[in-house]
Design a protein around this nucleic acid. Structure first.
Lengths: 129, 129
DNA sequence: ATACTGTATATATAGGGTATATACAGTATG
DNA sequence: CATACTGTATATACCCTATATATACAGTAT
C-alpha cells in the first residue's frame, strides 16, 4: 500500500497514515471489506514500528472507517453514507451549541448571532458560484 | 485586593487570578485607570511568585483589560463596550467561518447548515424564557 | 507446529504548560 | 543621585501528555 510519510511534518506519523487510508476509502479506491495490509507489513514498508501502524488503525476503527479481527487482520468498513451524514450533522449541532451559549454569555443577542451566521453563510454561498 | 486561589482547582493559578480581576472590571468594581496592585505585592498576598502574577497581568493585557507601564504599574483599561462587542462579533464570525467551511468540505449543504443552526438557536431562545 | 494475524504492557523521549528564583531595567522622589 | 518602589527578561525545574518504541502475549489458519 502506497503511503508517504514526512518525518518533518508536524502531524504525527500515525495520523498521517490514518489520514491517507481514510481518504482512499472516501475516494472509493478501497472497497468495503477489502483487507488492509497487516500492521507488521505496513510497519516494515514505512520503516516504523508496529505500535505506530496499530495506532493508526485504532484511530480509523474508532472513527468507523475500518474494522479489525484479532488474528486475522483489518478490513475496510462499509460506509453507510446516510449514517455518516447524520453523525456529521450531530457533531455540527454540538459545535454550534457551544459557540452559541458562549456568545450569549458574552452578551451577544440571538438576533445578532443569527445575523452573523447568515453573513458568513452567504459569503460561502457566493464563493460556491 | 481580595483574590482567592484554590490550588486543587485544575485551572492554573495565573488564570484564576486573571479571571477574577477581569470579572471585577466587567462588574464595574474596578474603575478605568484605577491602579492594580503591583505584581510583587499581589504575589506576596497570594503566596505565589512574581512570575505567576506577571503572567496573569500579561494575559489581561493581551485581552485589553488592563494596560501596563514599566516602572509604574498596571492600570484598568477603559472599556469601550461597543468596540468590545465588535471584537466579539468578529471572533464569532471567524469561528462560524471555520465550522462552515469544514462542514461544507465534508459534504454538508449550506441549507443543512442553516437548518442545523436554526434548530440549535431556537432551542437556546426557548431556554431564555 | 508454524507462520501468519492483532493485542497488551512497560518504557523512552519530546514538547508544552505551569511555576519558580534571580538578575536586569524603568520611574519617582527625598 | 540613592533608594525604593515599579515592571521585564532569562534560565531552570517539574509535570503531564502525546508520540513512538520493543517485546512479550494471544488469536487464526493451514
Amino acid at each position: 500500500m502506497l503511503i508517504t510519510l514526512s518525518p518533518q511534518n508536524p502531524t504525527p506519523l500515525y495520523r498521517q497514515i490514518a489520514e491517507q487510508i481514510k481518504n482512499r476509502i472516501l475516494q472509493g479506491e478501497l472497497e468495503a471489506h477489502e483487507s488492509l495490509p497487516s500492521i507488521r507489513q505496513l510497519a516494515k514498508e514505512l520503516t516504523t514500528s508496529v505500535i505506530t501502524t496499530k495506532k493508526a488503525y485504532e484511530e480509523l476503527e474508532r472513527e468507523g472507517w475500518i474494522y479489525t479481527r484479532a488474528g486475522k487482520g483489518s478490513y475496510v468498513a462499509p460506509i453507510d453514507r446516510s449514517a455518516r451524514h447524520e453523525r456529521l450533522l450531530n457533531s455540527l449541532k454540538n459545535q454550534f451549541q457551544k459557540l452559541i451559549t458562549e456568545a450569549v454569555d458574552s452578551g451577544i443577542t440571538p438576533h445578532e448571532l443569527e445575523k452573523a451566521f447568515q453573513e458568513v453563510l452567504q459569503r460561502c454561498r457566493e464563493e460556491e458560484n
